[in-house]
Design a protein around this nucleic acid. Structure first.
Length: 376
RNA sequence: GUGGGUAUAGCGUAGUUGGUUAACGCGCCAGAUUGUGGUUCUGGAGACCGUCGGUUCGAGUCCGACUAUCCACC
């Protein structure tokens, strides 16, 4: 059985240990994004062990389209399919339906939309999302929600959030049914609910209270980092987190920059995921404790130093900025790979330092120094 | 050697019957990217139009010579 236990607190920040059927997760944690059951940039499951990955995030929508969740099911579930030995969280497809798919139509039942691959018509609702995620057999499934734009009108957000709550009831019932079935691969699949409400404090709070009463395995805050300012995002965290259960993990979806993460941890968030380290890595944008570098810049052409002095990642242990820049400019896949490995290592290592600081109890002063350093 | 073609930004090209600030792609330089766009998006720099002379109010454009280069034939 899964359990979540808080080990240390430092102000609102907390570090915890969550045990699952696929292993223990120490939080705060950054989940490494492998949308289509692969981290883009030719990073293998084997590589994850050398960069300290604790949790892999994969995607319902993408895997449903390709190769098909039935294929993954028949291959024994995501863990066997990828030969992955760490917990896997699957996103519900809710966000992709709203960010990638075209011609969508929302009804109480779910969403009708067109595939971003070939345009064919698809339908996904709470039950479909749960069935797919059950097929994928991830460690943690996410509820099927709607992610309204941060600039959406109040009346629309109210209507949308009410529907997301009703969908959560259906997700929970369907997950319970699926976990009880003999042929289900992971009968202990966990389910996280998702808070929405754009930037309206009262809607966020009311929704948090509603879903808190539903005793989910964890709680995510969604619909942030989609165009609002950082101040608005931190404000939403400040007003919403106190209304989510203190004894359950929290997850800030899709966030973010190292600074975003440091700020959110200070407010009590456990789980994060973001495409930045992998996507930006593919574009030569690499992170260091003293801010980020764009390795495509001409000033690194003759730079013999590693991306970051003292970094223990596979790229910094051997290769220079100048060499990696050359690989990127030449379109060599190795260039992308080294940058992605560095960035994921940087994020994973940052989380390790965050946990250590919370353990020491000095987080609230330590994290501000880190943010200052990154501006230098 | 003879005949013909071509010379415009680092590379490849466009440029109307001569008419204002010479256009485009690649490359280069610099930004962007938050529950994934590896092929994306946005900016920017860069050319006295092979050289010299002529015609004209005005030449990248027309004429001549020269230079370079390509093709064919000796």
């Amino acid at each position: 059985m899964a359990s979540y236990r808080i080990l240390h607190r430092a102000g609102a920040a907390k570090s915890a240990e969550m045990s699952t059927v696929h292993g223990v997760i120490r939080t705060p944690v950054f989940m490494n994004v492998a949308t289509a059951a692969a981290i883009k940039g030719a990073v293998s499951t084997e590589d994850l062990e050398s960069i300290g990955t604790q949790v892999v995030l994969s995607n319902t929508y993408h895997l449903h389209l390709r190769p098909g969740d039935d294929v993954v099911y028949r291959m024994g579930g995501l863990h066997r399919f990828m030969d992955c030995h760490v917990p896997v969280l699957t996103d519900s497809g809710g966000f992709q339906v709203f960010s990638l798919a075209e011609n969508r139509k929302i009804s109480e039942a779910g969403v009708t939309f067109a595939s971003h691959i070939d345009g064919h018509k698809l339908f996904m609702g709470p039950e479909e999302s749960m069935r797919i995620q059950s097929h994928l057999a991830s460690t943690i499934a996410m509820a099927f929600d709607e992610c309204p734009s941060s600039r959406a009108e109040r009346s629309y957000v109210e209507e949308s959030v009410a529907r997301t709550t009703r969908w959560l009831v259906r997700c929970r019932a369907e997950m319970k049914r699926l976990n009880a079935m003999e042929e289900t691969i992971n009968k202990e699949q966990l389910l996280f609910g998702i808070n929405q409400g754009a930037v309206f404090d009262d809607i966020r709070i009311r929704h948090a209270q509603e879903i808190a009463a539903m005793e989910m395995d964890g709680y995510a805050i969604g619909g942030l980092a989609v165009g609002e300012t950082h101040e608005e995002m931190y404000h939403v965290l400040d007003v919403t987190l106190p209304h989510l259960p203190a004894d359950k993990p929290t997850y800030l979806m899709g966030v973010g920059t190292p600074e975003n993460i440091l700020e959110a941890v200070a407010r009590g968030v456990d789980f994060f995921d973001c495409v930045y380290p992998s996507r930006n890595g593919r574009h030569g944008h690499v992170y260091t404790k003293r801010g980020h570098l764009n390795l495509l810049n001409a000033c690194y052409e003759l730079d013999n130093r590693p991306i970051e002095e003292g970094c223990g990642c596979p790229a910094c242990r051997r290769y220079s900025r100048g060499y990696i820049r050359h690989l990127l400019k030449s379109g060599e896949m190795l260039g992308l790979r080294l940058c992605v490995l560095h960035n994921l290592y940087f994020y994973n290592h940052l989380m390790e330092e965050i946990r250590a600081s919370i353990g020491r109890g000095d987080y609230q002063t330590w994290y501000r120094q880190q943010i200052e350093g990154m501006k230098g």
